[in-house]
């Protein structure tokens, strides 16, 4: 395939480490979490894995997970600069 063709190849981080966008960081209280997985279902960027760990390199801090958590186990904490 000619390198001159303008074809982009799939790669993680194609839009950079979007975690740097955050002003608020999700913090999970594992005691309160009942592992329902709704946070993972609703995360627009699939930044929450099957163990419900949040990938802070990419989490943009939208806060949907905290808002939708039925157990209120996620709180949004302001990032220190």
């Amino acid at each position: 395939m000619s390198a001159k063709l303008a074809i982009s190849r799939p790669a993680e981080g194609a839009a950079g480490k979007t975690g740097t966008w955050r002003t608020f960081r999700p913090v999970v209280d594992r005691e309160a979490c009942n592992e329902c997985g709704l946070c993972r279902q609703y995360c627009p960027d699939a930044a929450i894995d099957e163990n419900l760990d949040i990938d802070l390199d990419y989490c943009k801090g939208c806060g949907i997970c905290a808002k939708e958590c039925p157990k209120k186990a996620i709180t949004m904490v302001r990032e220190e600069d």
Partner: peptide, 10 residues
């Protein structure tokens, strides 16, 4: 893949 440059909460 993680991630697109879509706005937060897109």
């Amino acid at each position: 893949l993680k991630t697109t440059s879509a706005c937060a909460g897109c």
